[in-house]
Design a protein around this nucleic acid. Structure first.
Length: 738
DNA sequence: TTTCCTGAATTTTTT
DNA sequence: ATTCAGGAAA
């Protein structure tokens, strides 16, 4: 049962508005998720709305999962039939059912950025475009933008008439789409575009979904782009029960096509819209909030908003400048260790936020050194690693024969002696017959000029056929294992026997785990479903609560999260705001976007905010000298506690042993007393025992002296050849048996 | 056909 | 600094 007493007046107002368009302007930390969940509960429990008729769209799968969980708790029953998901998954679900109306197969594949680039490369070759003048990335960017704005290749072509360069780009767009269709593939943007196309060309489909989704809610509305707006406004046209929640000050995805006008002009598009402002912040201290307000006040053209809080004043914002990035990272790791050691906080209470992923490296190094458990969000996506992409390509080939890209990726992996020359002949044959690449391979014997290469192709084709046949009575795990065994992929990696190949094998194991998890969790597990899930995960989705680690991530990833202690690192002009924004054609606008990003960062903090920067920093192998970020100057100075730069005495090359030991012990103790421990699963088994030789990322080789079983994790004592005896948590240390 | 080497480009942020 | 692509040699 929902209890409206727990909400403030504005929140109640938003919850109680049931019919007609509703815009909720929700400042940072004003409880918008709470309002959304209560509103859903209210619709179901009080207004008799069928949960089946509710669609809630969030930005990430993680947010969707959390919302479902929270709704589950307060809704009497039926919450499982509410459709809660991201824009992209929603569209995929619709397209899997109806995309055949647009001439695609319903088992289409989804191309990631790398796949897109490969396709574009082929397109450029075909059109004989000079890759110096027309860079693939640039072309893809332009096309992506066109799609964000729902501009079709033909419209683009019309627009481009008369401009030679634009016409070339338009041709590339046309050709690119053709290529995708031939492969029965969609890129990320297509998911939205094709769904809207579907709605426009098939009134019966649209009507079905309009009737189904009578109540639509959209979170993070400030970050929607034009197609996304088209999608939801088309769906909502019938019943007009559209509720959007957002904060124009947190719009940070312009580069991805987000159209801030969607939120600013909502009342123009829906003149009868009710507008509710949530201005009370429940998250941060007075000081943090004032700092955020001070910064964002420098932006023009915002919606009028005054964020306030009843929370206490809190600590001043700590600001500190260091000589270089090293010292900055060392300071942060030191502070975190200190706080945890004192028992003031746990690791999971901290987040380190930065502008670009590359900044994570220094922190990682220092954290490893200080034995601080951490998790880096983002960076190289797990699913874009070579070995994972290879296996995925096999799976895609088995699942969707039309995806020529996947086939071409793996036809010679592992080596089968099939090279470019052969591939070109097969491709030419496929093109002339208008069949897919794989179909051409099946007829390899008929292809003129192939000679004995055809004999090399046959076993591969045979293998895929075999897999397809046994697909029905194999689990996902068996299937992947079969691929690894029958192709000799795993064998090759084992024989290679380097650190790198070992890491790859580990990644593959991890991948199998994910497949198993999928199979256990999904309602109707199948190969296409798995591939789809893999294609649509965001980095942030893998972050779980109750994992006691410091989180490191970009400011973009941090949107929607909160932490008691936040470190905002690298506040330097040129890094944040980025050099790109300062040097842009229209710096004002770009810097305003960076400022919003800064606002997002500051408002993540609940109790304490520390801002750091470095005088000089290595960028692309060159040392750069940067000034303190302009954003720091925008924080009212009375809120700032500036610390002077502490000159560092030359560091001993080694952390004193007992310190790190005590740290580990201390942390261990706090964990043991944590009642949450019972929820946490300990690493099931260690693959090394006492006496084994192991290696550690930072400390190198060593011998296991002792393994103690703790409540939450194993504690392992290792004698390292170069660093002496250290004690560490097994799940964190990631020791590898040598 | 593969491997090894050199030169060039790359880094903003992501579903 | 590191990765990646293209070209030459094996």
């Amino acid at each position: 049962m929902s209890d409206l007493e727990l909400l403030n007046r504005e929140q109640q107002e938003a919850v109680l508005h049931v019919d007609g368009p509703l815009l909720i302007l929700a400042g940072a930390g004003s409880g918008k998720t709470r309002v959304l969940t209560y509103r859903i509960a209210h619709l179901i429990d009080e207004c008799g709305v069928n949960p089946w008729n509710i669609l809630a769209i969030t930005f990430t799968n993680k947010a969707a999962g959390e919302m479902r969980e929270r709704v589950d708790k307060i809704v009497g029953y039926g919450s499982e039939s509410i459709w809660v998901s991201t824009f992209h998954s929603t569209c995929v679900r619709i397209l899997r059912r109806y995309i055949d109306r647009l001439g695609y197969d319903t088992n289409f594949t989804i191309y990631d950025t790398e796949d897109q680039k490969t396709v574009m490369k082929n397109v450029c070759q075909k059109l004989q475009l000079d890759s110096k003048l027309y860079k693939e990335r640039m072309l893809l960017n332009v096309i992506s933008h066109a799609k964000d704005e729902y501009i079709s290749p033909n419209e683009f072509l019309l627009e481009a008439k008369g401009d030679f360069r634009q016409e070339k780009i338009a041709q590339a767009y046309v050709e690119y789409q053709k290529e995708l269709k031939k492969n029965n593939a969609l890129d990320f943007d297509d998911l939205l575009v094709k769904t809207v196309e579907l709605f426009q060309s098939c009134p019966d489909v649209l009507e079905y979904y309009q009737n189904r989704f009578r109540y639509i809610m959209v979170d993070e509305y400030q970050d929607t782009n034009t197609v996304q707006f088209k999608f939801i406004s088309t769906l909502a046209r019938q019943y007009r029960n559209l509720c959007v929640v957002g904060d124009d000050d947190q719009s940070i995805y312009k580069f991805r096509g987000a159209n801030i006008r969607n939120i600013l002009d909502f009342e123009k598009v829906f003149p009868d819209a009710k507008v509710v402002k949530l201005e009370q912040n429940y998250r941060s201290t007075q000081n943090i909030l004032n700092a955020a307000n001070g910064v964002i006040a420098n932006n023009r053209g915002r919606k009028e908003k005054a964020l306030w809080t009843e929370n206490e004043q809190g600590e001043p914002i700590l600001f500190q400048q260091f000589q270089n990035g090293y010292e900055e990272a060392e300071y942060v790791s030191g502070e975190i260790s200190k706080k945890v050691r004192k028992g003031e906080a746990e690791y999971q209470d901290f987040a380190v936020l930065y502008r670009i992923n590359a900044q994570s490296r220094l922190f990682e190094e220092k954290f490893l050194y200080a034995n601080i458990p951490y998790k880096i969000v983002g960076g190289v996506n797990f699913y874009s690693r070579k070995e994972i992409k290879d296996i995925l390509a096999y799976l895609k080939t088995i699942d969707n024969g039309k995806d020529g890209l996947a086939v071409r990726r793996i036809i010679n992996v592992p080596k089968r002696g099939i090279g470019n020359v052969t591939l070109a002949k097969v491709q030419a044959y496929a093109d002339s017959r208008d069949i897919s690449f794989f179909e051409a391979l099946e007829e390899a014997g008929e292809i003129p000029g192939l000679g004995k290469a055809a004999l090399k192709i046959q076993p591969f084709v045979h293998l895929i056929h075999e897999m397809r046949l046994s697909l029905a009575d194999m689990s996902m795990q068996d299937l992947i294992q079969a691929i690894l065994d029958k192709t000799g992929y795993a064998e090759d990696l084992k024989n290679e026997d380097t650190d790198e190949s070992e890491a790859r094998l580990e990644n593959i194991d991890e991948f199998i785990n994910k497949a198993v998890t999928y199979e256990e969790g999904a309602e109707e597990p199948n190969l296409s479903g798995f591939l789809e899930e893999v294609a649509l995960v965001a980095d942030i989705d893998s972050v779980e609560d109750g994992d006691n680690r410091v989180l490191l991530m970009t400011l973009h990833s941090a949107k929607g999260l909160e932490f008691p202690y936040v470190y905002l690192a690298g506040l330097e002009d040129g890094l944040f705001p980025s050099y790109m924004s300062i040097a842009a054609d229209d710096p004002t606008e770009e810097i305003e976007e960076e400022r919003r990003l800064c606002y997002v960062g500051i408002t993540r903090a609940m109790k304490e905010l520390t801002i750091t920067c470095a005088r000089c920093r290595m960028v692309r192998g060159e040392t750069q000298y940067n000034n303190v970020s302009r954003f720091v100057r925008e924080i009212p100075s009375e809120l700032l506690a500036r610390k002077s730069v502490i000159p560092r005495e030359p560091k001993k090359p080694e952390v004193p042993q007992n310190t790190s030991y005590q740290k580990a012990k201390e942390a261990f103790r706090t964990k043991t007393f944590d009642p949450q421990q019972f929820k946490v699963v300990k690493a099931d088994k260690l693959d090394y025992t006492v006496g084994d030789q192991v290696s550690h990322v930072k400390f190198g080789k060593g011998t296991v002296l002792e393994i103690t079983e703790g409540g939450r994790d194993y504690e392992v004592k290792v004698d390292f050849e170069r660093f002496g005896v250290k004690k560490m948590f097994a799940s964190f240390a990631k020791l590898k048996k040598v």
